[in-house]
Write a protein that binds this DNA or RNA. Structure first.
Lengths: 337, 337
DNA sequence: CTGTTAGCGCTTTCAA
DNA sequence: TTGAAAGCGCTAACAG
């Protein structure tokens, strides 16, 4: 390995002078600078960021921990994070917990050892302990998509409750009354909020009991959606519309519908939270409540970097991003209407 | 920041003793160990991996550089890499170049400064320089999916040429003769190999000229596929089948077909390289040549880690993974057949 | 079984 | 404008 000492010797100067050239700090004569730069090039010297970070006490690296790397919602967030971070000269370490609190704890530990300057975290359902730990250790971090009840923390998320209200309203306007809600896990706030938005909208329409009866909790997966949909469809009378609290649940529901040959939207309507990326779809036809995933990544990163530079207010910030109801072909009036 | 010295003082021992406890090395009395562990817990001590890596001269971190993080093919690779690496106690830094050689060079530089132990690289079309650089600097790395002509390097990839041959053969067997090929960029070997496989199969069927005339180069994107398909469809007589060299090109082609109301497979057949993940598809119906993306990630990582441990042979390794032709509903005999 | 010394590659501080 | 010494947090090598 080529070190700063090698370069110094080659250029006939001290290590300190080389350091000054690398960091463009202090005064150096043009002649010396040229000699040092030549030596760097000749030797193919690469500064050791480990040693620098050890002195500087910062790594210019942040980490992004998501719960499902296969979900386009999270990869889109990742792009936003990446773009914003690299614009400010930060690197991003990307981690995936698969919704497991154990993996989450494990990653946070490793990342702290690696001295990341801050964390971006989509918390699992069991994140209370680790988030409390981060707070106690004064590690800068920002939550994404979900909050962690019982803690104070910066968070960037959508207004799931309000957005769901509008989505359900759209179904109600079409004439539906028997609407089932397939919700994600009960220990995830975004999922809960969507459930509440559903309940709220149904209640406002005088359908509170209907809503209670037709709420199903499952996981944010295709399998979960499939199973929950089967339960919802087994009810008599059958629902005329299904609301899925995320994209994967909707796909699972779609499979269940197809299996019993129900047509969408002729026989039953289907809407969901989260869009699927245009690029992976042959035919966009689902009516969705779209979240601004890319922006969520960008803003969370901007907030985190502000924190790192002491440019954010002391109190925990809560940034709520707008959503958009995109009406496509999967929602229509109920068959009997 | 709490350091090893703080722990040592608290436990009333030397720093070295604390180090021994952390690393579980050397002999320590149970009593001392307990005291040290108590001190660690009380202070909430987190070892500084920077300082350790500086001494050990290894970071137990590798990097994965892909060309398009939005493509499920690459996120699936990422999962394989992640799983294999973490099983061996390595962390992964995940980077995205968007097919830009400049970004690629930039990332490699930063990563080398960060002292990653090795690199996993899906090379861009302009990677010759950076790969040569890596070779000269004896940085351990493994190429994924593509090779870089003019260099020697470990690579894990599919046999694109052979796989394409079989895919085209499937179309020929169905009775197609007017088959168009929508290829990715000309400076990417996997794309070229798929073009060659197409040419080869057509030639064996006595359709060499037909193939030459119906080959279109574009980029591995939905937009690229859309545009190339429009060109292919403008020919007279029109092709009765389209072969797309990746999933995104196929989706673009699908859009172009829909725009002029061509039905698949009744009016025209469509097959492509790379599957789309089950989870993001409402209705899998494309006939595809599936690559083992997850395995590609795993094997490349295993090879890289072997290299790091001097367990791999001196010569550059080439691991060719099998592919699978999955026949679904998008391919059928041509309309006139 | 435990401690001391030296040094990883770099930069801060102070002096020249 | 340049350099020497000290030290960031940790561990290898040796000594006790």
């Amino acid at each position: 390995m080529i070190t700063i000492a090698d370069v110094a010797k080659r250029a006939g100067v001290s290590k300190m002078t080389v350091s000054r050239v690398i960091n463009d700090s202090g005064y150096i004569s043009d002649e010396t600078r040229a000699r040092v730069e030549a030596a760097i090039k000749e030797l193919g010297y690469i500064p050791n960021a480990l040693a620098r970070s050890l002195r500087f006490k910062q790594t210019r690296t942040i980490a992004l921990i998501v719960t499902d790397i296969t979900n386009p919602f999270f990869t889109t967030i990742a792009r936003g994070v990446e773009d914003q971070a690299s614009a400010e000269g930060f690197s991003v370490i990307f981690c995936n917990t698969d919704e497991s609190p154990e993996e989450e704890t494990q990653y946070v530990n490793v990342l702290l050892q690696k001295q990341v300057d801050g964390l971006l975290l989509v918390p699992t359902g069991g994140a209370l302990e680790i988030v409390t730990f981060l707070n106690n250790h004064a590690v800068p971090f920002v939550l994404l998509d979900r909050t962690v009840p019982g803690t104070e923390a910066d968070v960037v998320r959508s207004d799931s409750k309000q957005a769901t209200y509008e989505g359900i309203q759209h179904l109600l306007d079409l004439g539906h009354t028997r609407i089932a809600a397939l919700c994600g896990s009960e220990d995830i706030t975004s999922s809960l909020d969507r459930g509440k938005g559903y309940q709220w909208a149904m209640q406002d329409a005088g359908l509170a009991e209907e809503a209670t009866r037709r709420t199903y909790f499952t996981s944010f997966t295709v399998k979960g959606g499939y199973e929950a949909a089967q339960m919802a469809l087994a009810e008599t009378p059958r629902p005329t519309a299904i609301f899925a609290t995320n994209n994967f649940i909707a796909i699972g529901a779609m499979r269940a519908l197809r299996e019993i040959s129900l047509r969408v939207p002729e026989d039953i309507s289907l809407i969901c939270f989260d869009d699927l990326p245009d690029a992976t779809l042959l035919d966009p036809f689902l009516t969705v409540i779209e979240q601004q995933a890319y922006d969520m990544g960008r803003q969370a990163t901007a907030l985190l970097l502000d924190r790192l530079n002491d440019k954010a207010p002391d109190e925990a910030q809560e940034i709520i991003l707008p959503t958009k109801l995109i009406i496509r072909r999967s929602s229509a009036p109920p068959p009997t209407a």
